[in-house]
Every structure is written in C-alpha cells, then in structure tokens.
Computed example of a mutant assay.
Amino acid sequence: MFIHPIQHINHLKTNVIQQSEIYICIFSIVRVRRKRGDEMKVNIDINEKYDETTVTIHAKKWSKELEELIRKLEYQTPKRIIGVQGGKSVLLSPSEIDFIFAENRKVYASMNQKSIELTMKLYEAEELLESHGFCRLSKSALGNLNNMVSFELAFNGNLCVYFHSGSKEYVSRKYVHELKRKLILGVEEYDR
C-alpha cells in the first residue's frame, strides 16, 4: 500500500482520511493575492481512484492571473534553448540568461556580458521563457526577473535594470507597470 508523505509548509493545511485500507490525502492551500480580499484557494485531492489528472477552476470572472495560470498549465517548460556561437549550436540554460534583445533583425541572449545569437524570434522567446521568469522590458528586449539586482531611473524617464553579471538593459515606460507587478507578486524559482 502506498502512503503519501505529509509535509507541513507555511500555510498548508492537510487532512488525511483512512477509508478501507486506502489513504486519501487532501491538501488545501490559501494564498493571499495582491488585491484586497482577492485570494486563491487550491485544493489537491490525491487518490488511487483517479485514472488521470484533471484541473477545475472556479472563478467569479476571467482575469489576467487566470490567463497566466492556464498558460502555465498548458505549456511544458523547456530546460534549455539553442543558441548559435561561432557556427556551432550551443545549449543555453534560461537561468543563466540575463536578458534577450533584438538587433538588426536578429535575436540575442546576453549572458555574462556576452551575446549569443538565438534561432528564434523575440515573441517566440517571450512565450518560451515566460515560465522561467522572463518579462518584456521594451519593444526589443526581455529580462530575466530572477537575475535582476537593482534599478536606476534614467533622465529620459526610462528605467535602467542591472543584472547579477553586471550587464544592464533599459525598460521603456510602457512596460514599467507590468515589470513592477511581476516583481511585487514574486518570481517563482524554477529548476536550475
């Protein structure tokens, strides 16, 4: 007989019910969101009686957070992306990339103050890397929220972002609000 381990994590409530030699674990998680009175409750029911995993969402109305949740559920997170350097294909780990930018109709990944060409368009990189904590910085750049260390306001109203490696990139005013929202909500750490 298989018994699920029960872990107590911060705000995790656990109920265990024994039914005729089968253990059922029900976990309830309550997370307070950024808006007043707006919280999300997640129930996970692990039981041998289920043949497949299903997800049901109950919500008062459609929101951007729900859209992001659906996108994350549907999309498998890539562990690596392919770049081209010196005529060779190079495997890049998303966690090592500071930012991605487009220049002269080509797309590059900036890592440790070096640029490596990617074999995709900027919007494709955005879709692929959003689940790794990448966010739009400008019309021509994406930034890795996990690698950002500081910000500086530029004289033209743009924001300058500094990364762990010492690289920097500018955030245009149009994308400052979204960047701030994602930084406040927190970036989930992914397998590194």
Rank of each mutant, 00 (worst) to 15 (best):
I46Y: 12
L122D: 00
Q85K: 04
G157R: 03
V187E: 08
N158H: 08
E124R: 08
E124K: 07
M1P: 14
I57Q: 12
Y23L: 12
Y170Q: 09
R105S: 15
E39Q: 12
N112S: 07
N144C: 04
F134K: 00
E103D: 14
V55Y: 11
S20P: 01
I82E: 13
H11W: 13
L142E: 01
I29P: 02
I70N: 08
L122E: 02
A125T: 03
Q19C: 13
E68A: 04
V84S: 11
E152L: 03
G186D: 08
N104R: 05
N43A: 09
L118T: 02
R31A: 12
P5K: 15
R80C: 09
Y108G: 00
A109H: 02
F101S: 07
L183Q: 12
M1Y: 14
F99Q: 03
S165F: 01
V84C: 07
K174E: 03
K114S: 06
L142R: 00
N144K: 04
F27G: 06
T77R: 15
E39W: 10
K182T: 05
M1H: 14
Q85A: 02
N104V: 04
N146W: 05
M1A: 13
L159C: 09
Y175R: 01
H132D: 07
R33A: 08
D51F: 06
L73I: 09
I97G: 01
I116R: 06
I70G: 08
R192E: 13
K168I: 07
A125N: 04
S89C: 14
K114M: 06
K180G: 01
K180H: 03
M120L: 13
K182I: 02
R136A: 01
L179P: 00
K79Y: 08
P78L: 11
N43C: 11
K60P: 09
G86A: 06
R33L: 13
F163V: 02
L73H: 09
E103C: 11
K88M: 08
Y50P: 07
V90R: 03
V176W: 00
Q113A: 07
N144S: 09
S165R: 01
K72H: 06
I22T: 10
E52T: 15
G166C: 01
Y108H: 03
F2V: 14
L128G: 03
D51E: 14
K106A: 05
T53W: 04
M148L: 09
S172Y: 00
N104D: 07
E68L: 08
T119M: 10
L12I: 15
K106R: 15
D98R: 03
V32W: 12
V187T: 10
L145G: 03
L137A: 01
S28L: 14
